[in-house]
Design a protein around this nucleic acid. Structure first.
Lengths: 252, 252
DNA sequence: GTGCGCCGACTGGTCTGACCAGTGGACTAG
DNA sequence: CTAGTCCACTGGTCAGACCAGTCGGCGCAC
């Protein structure tokens, strides 16, 4: 018996889709690189031999995917953007909004993710990177006296450094995306917490412990501390019923 | 000194963007749910008091984000789609194509991710779920005699079950996305490997070992085996120079 | 009464052509 | 050489048109 031919569902290919494909392909091949400009809409009309509506629909798709940006009046035409995680973040945020994704799931993911990254980082880190980590701790301590946003930023720098040390930009992107979504959900609550200063101090303390464990080369301990830190920091915003699930993630 | 007011960059809000926002908000509020239909374009023109081009640009954006689907001739109007990870996968695939993301990074991410998921799963799994895992092993064994696609599908079922056991749909989505991208990059090469049957048998053996470790409640061992499996299975497609980085991830 | 095929109202996809506010480079006056 | 003006051209939006395709209902044949 021969294998059945596996037909594909037939769906008409819209003209604007083929334009999107062509531009994305050119980008993948390197014929188009970030910073370059696309021809003006009217010029694209001529090149693709379609109407302006069609070209514009293609541009809207590309724009919503973070590939290009059009600015009215700019004689240089639409700009090819460098990749950013904002489009990814938008997708995940949508996923979260439709409520198929709860805050506790996001946090659980971050605990797992960040723990794994720290474990890897504690093996791969160089002495110089250890110094860098110490420096971010100092920055966090200084930021406490400024305001919560500053502290949040310093905390972000710490986690980005960890992701970089683990030599995997996907981890970095992933952290970035999920962190952004989480903060989007609860940043307002955090900023108005009455004891925010105490929280920040405790968080700083935890981070210092993590760095100590990394210095000692104890990846397990570092990861565990990181998860504990994340839990302590955010658990208050999670319904009691779901806290247990998260707490179970702390131990490995 | 008072805090500086943190101005936002001012950028004109396009009409089609406000339409997108309104529809996405309605979706977030639950006024619109998957399966429902949007009014026809001409009806939307009337409701939003804009031209059809504008409505269509908004629909194209929503469509490219996987929110709706328009079919020509459908008297019911555009359909609200349930969330799927395909839009996410598209974004990550684009990220990979721009070559800021190498195969080795994708695999490294999967090794970390899958290892972490298995470690969590080995703590949370119920006896019934253990039985389910055994069942997927049987399915994989049977699939070897069919063809590579069948085996790949059975393997996918295994990893999806792991993700489900770890009780975090984000892990599931993440695995799904990255796995899809990786396979998109090398599935053709794998399918034509001369010794594909031997590879599949070895992979099956490794999976069985993982399940054994999960049964024994040894999360570390299970995770390590999983990473080893992933490495053995895919390392051949990674440049030699990058294999070392991946090999370093196997041990925890 | 029931099943079938036809038809038309309507859909989305595309095109044409138009107007406007705004941009930025070239050109000019000092 | 600078500062200011100006205009060609940009993207954003609109109105109106045509086409191929779809679906639901009507009427016909059985």
């Amino acid at each position: 018996m021969t294998k059945s031919p596996r037909f594909q569902p037939v769906q008409p290919v819209r003209a604007y889709q083929r334009i999107v494909e062509q531009i994305e392909d050119a980008l993948a091949r390197g014929d188009l690189t970030p910073g370059q400009r696309l021809p003006s809409e009217r010029e694209l009309v001529a090149q693709f031999a379609v109407s302006r509506s069609t070209v514009r629909e293609a541009l809207r798709v590309l724009e919503s995917n973070g590939v290009v940006r059009s600015r009215p009046g700019d004689p240089n035409g639409p700009e090819i953007l460098p990749f950013s995680s904002s489009a990814l973040r938008k997708q995940v945020a949508r996923l979260a909004r439709v409520d198929e994704l709860s805050l506790s799931e996001l946090l659980g993911f971050r605990m797992i993710m960040d723990g794994a990254a720290i474990q890897v980082a504690s093996r791969l880190r160089t002495p110089e990177q250890l110094d860098e980590l110490e420096a971010t701790l100092v920055a966090m301590r200084d930021a406490i006296d400024v305001d919560f946003d500053a502290f949040s930023e310093a905390d972000l720098a710490f986690h980005e450094l960890i992701a970089r040390i683990s030599r995997n930009s996907l981890i970095q992107t992933c952290n970035d995306v999920v962190r952004g979504v989480v903060l989007g959900l609860i940043s307002d609550k955090i900023a108005h917490a009455p004891n925010s200063r105490a929280l920040m101090l405790e968080s700083l303390h935890h981070h210092a412990e993590v760095v100590d464990a990394i210095r000692a080369g104890n990846g397990h301990a570092a990861a565990r501390l990181a998860r504990q830190n994340m839990f302590d920091y955010y658990a208050g915003y999670v319904p009691d019923s779901e806290q247990e699930t998260l707490r179970a993630l702390i131990e490995d």
